[in-house]
């Protein structure tokens, strides 16, 4: 890799968590900065170039969501939130105030690394203006408004395409129901999740090899959808591990 190492800012008051995150990130070629309080984190984010921020929600001096809001007010740096409290409503709120993704504690390092890579890739794609998003066998060319599956062109209705487009713009990260409904149907339909369910079903019939166990358009129950290819981590050279997902 000739690219410079990505710089990650880890914000957590537990030293044990910071320690394993530092080791995990360094083993995977990241440069790690640490902060143990919200104030320190905000200062670090203003003083140094940072590529991605990992924020714990329970900080001694302020709520993690406040750190997200403050950093988001002047920076587009990707932010991933670590949370032990994990009601779906709270996740939705975090995403709405500008977090790119969340990981529920306890989690495995592979799961976090996968989220971090996705967020970094999205950031670099946004910076380079690259128009095509590839998710496994699916390619969405945002400039040409063309969708291909294994090289074959798909025919989508305008609403189906719009849905896929919004998901592709956030490829790899969760997009909340409310955001999708607002972008595709308009803000008066923000509570009409059943529209979304029906259209996701139709879309899956077209893009998923097995619509019953979707591998491309994944559901985040109670939160939203994520456009991500399940095999992607393996291909990227990250260790293949069953992600240590935790329950709410």
């Amino acid at each position: 890799m000739s690219e410079p190492s990505p710089i990650v800012l880890v914000v957590d008051d537990e030293i044990q968590i910071r320690r394993f995150l530092r080791t995990g990130f360094e083993l995977n070629g990241f440069v790690v900065h640490e902060a143990s309080t919200g104030t320190e984190a905000i200062r670090a984010a203003t003083l140094r170039p940072i590529d991605i921020v990992i924020v714990d929600l329970g900080l001694p001096d302020m709520d993690g969501s406040e750190v997200v809001e403050r950093i988001r007010s002047w920076s587009t740096v990707p932010i991933i939130v670590l949370s032990v409290r994990s009601s779906e409503a709270q996740k939705v709120r975090l995403l709405e105030i500008g977090a790119d993704d969340y990981v529920v504690k306890p989690f495995g390092i592979a799961e976090l690394l996968a989220r971090v890579r996705v967020a970094l890739r999205r950031q670099s794609r946004a910076a380079s203006g690259e128009p095509a998003v590839t998710v496994g066998p699916l390619t969405i060319d945002l400039a040409a408004r063309a969708v291909t599956l294994n090289g074959a062109r798909l025919t989508l209705t305008p609403k189906e395409y719009r849905l896929l487009q919004v998901l592709a713009q956030h490829a790899g990260n969760v997009v909340t129901h409310q955001h999708l409904l607002k972008e595709v149907w308009g803000s008066i339909h923000m509570q009409d999740t059943h529209y979304l369910r029906i259209f996701v079903r139709k879309l899956r019939q077209k893009i998923e090899p097995h619509p019953d166990s979707p591998k491309i358009l994944a559901t985040e129950l109670g939160v939203g959808y994520r456009l991500a290819y399940s095999g992607a981590e393996g291909e990227n050279g990250a260790p293949v591990m069953a992600p240590a997902k935790s329950e709410i």
Partner: peptide, 23 residues
């Protein structure tokens, strides 16, 4: 209880996953 029990668990589990990938 939720906080006190799960915070150390997060460290244990996280550290174990890092160890399992350590060269």
């Amino acid at each position: 209880v939720s906080h006190e029990l799960r915070t150390p668990l997060a460290s244990i589990l996280g550290a174990a996953t890092v160890l399992s990938t350590a060269p």
